[in-house]
Each structure stands twice: as structure tokens, then as C-alpha cells.
Amino acid sequence: MDYKETIEMYLNGELKGEALKSFLDHLDNDAFYMKEFTIRKEIEDALTETDVIDLKNNLEKIHLSFGDTKSRKISKFEFNTSSFRWLLVAATLTLVLVSSAILFYINNESYSSGELYSMYYKPYDSYGGVRSGKINTDDIFINAQIKYDKNDFENALILFQQILDIDKTSIASYFYAGVCYIETQEFEKASESFQFIINHNDNLFVEQAEWYLALSYLNSNQKEIARKHFEAIANSQSYYKEKATEILEQL
């Protein structure tokens, strides 16, 4: 078999047993083979890193609203422009595909609040490994994040609560504690955490808290309250605007 086909089979997860072992040995000992593997693997990574593409799109929008971009330079980075166009198309297509898939299911099957919740809920990402020069609550926060990252939500929650016992202003701890409460099925406490953040208002978690609060209501089958929260999100410039609109179409 051609080596390129073998690499593609590996990337597709189709190599097993001896064939896989032989492939990995070859990869370790042949620089040319490794080079061929790397480009193929990187292409797949580049085409699937939609989170980075979303971030780039968001940064472009923010830059336009932030200030002038008068002097535009043509340089070796020129491909960024056409690539950005592709990124926009890709992002739009992805959105259309995902929306279509969801609408397809929605139009063909009826979902309960719980099922809708399961389709849209995922725990917020953590950044467990950040180390800083500070100590005390920062150290506890890092440990909490590490536990959160390992889906050990019960113990992460204990640590977030420890921080809140020391520092009642730690909005990040309120937020992650809220997600931990969702994960441990304590929806009322989750709602309290998110509501605190929303009432506080002068912080960077309001957008996220509104989304998770609405999902908490959805999961506890409080449809009308959930609807009001999703409507507020859908009518805002929130990152969760499209998802909230999709849910409203089903509620």
C-alpha cells in the first residue's frame, strides 16, 4: 500500500494491531515519513479549529468597532484577506449546517425541555494550568480549575466555595461554581450563582451567566421563565444569540 494511503488510514483511525504498531515505528524512525504525516495531520487540524476561526472573526468585528483601520498594507500576509473571506464563508456554512441539522430534528421530532437542554448544554471550558505570581485564592482557584477540567465537579465546587468564603467578590468562582452546580444537578443553587453574577452586572461573565441560567430553567422544566431568558439573549448581541433563537423556535 502507498505510504500516503497508510497515513490517511491512520488519520481516519482505521489502522489497528500490527499495522498500527508498524506505522508508529516507521513514523519514529523515518524523518521523511514524519514530514509527510505532519502536513496531512496539520491540514486536518487547520480545517477543524473552528474555535480559533470564531475568535478571529470576533476580533475583526471588535477591531472595526474599536477604531480606524485607515492604512491597509499589502504584504506577504495578503492571503489573510482571502482566507478571512473563506473563514467567514466557512463559519456561515457551519452555522447553516448546524442550524439545518437542528431544525431538521426539530421539525421531525418533538423534544422535551430536558432533551433540548442536553442538545445545547456543555460545561464552560476551564483554563486549569494558568499559574501566576499570586498566592492564596489564586492557588485554590488553579486547583479548582484542575479538578473542574477533570470533570471532578464535586471537589471543584468545594474549592470554589472555599474561595468565596475568603473573597465574596470572586465572580469567576461564582460562575464556575454555578456550572459545577449544574453538573451535580443542583439547579436551584446554580440559578442563584448565575443570578448573582447578572445582578452584579459590572463583570465579564454576564453573557455566559444568562445562557447557563436559561439552560438551568430549561432543565428544571420551568419553560416560561426559560423562554423569557432565551428571548432576552436572542434580542441581544450575546455570543449565544443564535443558539437561543434556535431553542425559542422549539419551545
Binding site: 474599536f66 464552560y124 501566576s132 459590572d202 463583570n203 465579564l204 455566559q208 455570543y239
Partner: peptide, 28 residues
Amino acid sequence: KKYTEQEVLAGILGNSSKTLQYVYKEAF
């Protein structure tokens, strides 16, 4: 001046527009 580092880092991770606007305003 206003937000904790934890908030900002988590906001960057979540692609939060409000966070990115804040970072832009403070650092750009």
C-alpha cells in the same frame, strides 16, 4: 482597573465579546 484576571482569562477562553472589547481597550 475593573475586572479580575480570572474573569478576563475565562472570557478570552469563551470568546466573550465583552471581554475582548475590554482587552482591546486596555491593551491595544
